[in-house]
């Protein structure tokens, strides 16, 4: 069987002196390296992890890819192979293209705004709490518990009847119809999505700022009179690892984690509403019962995300200064 012990056949409880003698007499031990007698053991050790990845990633992915080539009977009675038809249908549909365009717009705006606003707030907070860690803990604690609450409030702000933002818009003669008017809904969606994600950006940028040594900033204060220029030439470059990380997280968030938010805003509303590709996958698959089409769309989405991530790591990370 597998034997992991270093000195296999040592007698039980040798005297300390004997053990020492044996150690001194033995040739110097080779660098410790565990050898498995059979190739089965490593697989067994890896099995739980592999199982999770397989069950929750590879299997559904494989399912999606397979069913994207079939046209399923709406009543689940059978399916027929249709080749690339689901893909060509999706890509040539004007509606799909419109939703794709909105998704790109939505993801870019949400990612950029939550990063920018989070950064402005973090820079301001950093000025106040520099060197006062009690302050920092308090602020971060507040922001850490805030998101779920903020989400509820965000929805209420745009409520057709009691939403203060809707009323506020009305003051300027803007009759906001969230859930009815395409762009009113889009704006509400973006505002709430950004709002929900500002705390996340805030915390990471704040801790990134706090990690920049005080003396480096002071050196910059002596070298450069303009605060903005200082920020752009010293602080921001030192924050790039954080910003890079947040960009990826923000895009993923805007693409996928806004699902519930969109659902609340457009569910049971007339058809002409903005939505993202992820929501469309859900809509076609589970509401429209078009599993083939929905699968094709999710495969397209998977490929897009893959390309995006590869691109980010390959091209953007090169410009990042890690310490």
């Amino acid at each position: 069987m597998t034997d992991l012990s270093l000195s296999p056949k040592t007698p039980a409880r040798p005297s300390a002196l004997a053990a020492l003698k044996a150690r001194l007499a033995a040739p110097p031990a080779a660098p410790k390296r565990v050898q498995f007698d059979r190739p089965l053991m490593p697989w067994l050790l890896l099995a739980p992890q592999l199982a999770i990845v397989a069950v929750f990633f590879y299997w559904p992915s494989a399912q999606a890819i397979t069913s994207s080539f079939y046209l399923e009977d709406p009543f689940g009675l059978g399916s027929s192979f249709v080749g690339m038809a689901n893909y060509t249908d999706a890509l040539s549909s004007a509606e799909y293209r419109k939703i794709a365009a909105f998704t790109v717009f939505f993801a870019a705006v949400v990612a950029a705004l939550s990063l920018a606003i989070g950064m402005v707030l973090a820079v301001k907070a950093d000025k106040v709490i520099r060197g006062r860690s009690a302050y920092r803990t308090a602020l971060i604690a507040v922001y850490a518990i805030a998101p779920p609450v903020a989400g509820l409030i965000g929805m209420m702000l745009f409520d057709q009847h009691i939403g203060p933002l809707v009323r506020f818009a009305a003051l300027f003669g803007w009759d906001m119809k969230v859930g009815l008017d395409y762009w009113d809904t889009a704006i509400a969606m973006i505002v709430v999505a950004v709002w929900l994600h500002i705390p996340y950006n805030f915390i990471f940028i704040l801790s990134g700022l706090q990690a920049i040594p005080a003396a480096v900033r002071e050196a910059a204060v002596i070298d450069c009179a303009s605060p903005l220029r200082r920020f752009l030439t010293v602080v921001l470059p030192l924050l790039t690892p954080t910003v890079f990380f947040l960009t990826i997280i923000n895009l993923t968030y805007a693409l996928f984690d806004t699902f519930a938010l969109i659902d609340v805003m457009v569910k049971d509303k007339p058809a002409n509403n903005p939505m993202t590709l992820v929501y469309k996958v859900y809509l076609d698959g589970f509401r429209g019962n078009d599993f083939g089409g929905s699968s094709a769309q999710s495969v397209i989405l998977m490929v897009v995300v893959l390309v995006l991530t590869l691109f980010q790591f390959r091209y953007i990370e090169r410009r990042v200064h890690y310490g």
């Binding site: 040594p213 003396a215 480096v216 002071e218 050196a219 204060v221 002596i222 010293v234 310490g323």
Partner: peptide, 20 residues
């Protein structure tokens, strides 16, 4: 007067070089 306009240069204990 702002530090940058005082016409002084400072050398810090931990050097405070710009890492990037």
């Amino acid at each position: 007067v702002e530090p940058a306009h005082r016409d002084i240069a400072m050398v810090f204990q931990n050097y405070a070089l710009y890492p990037h």
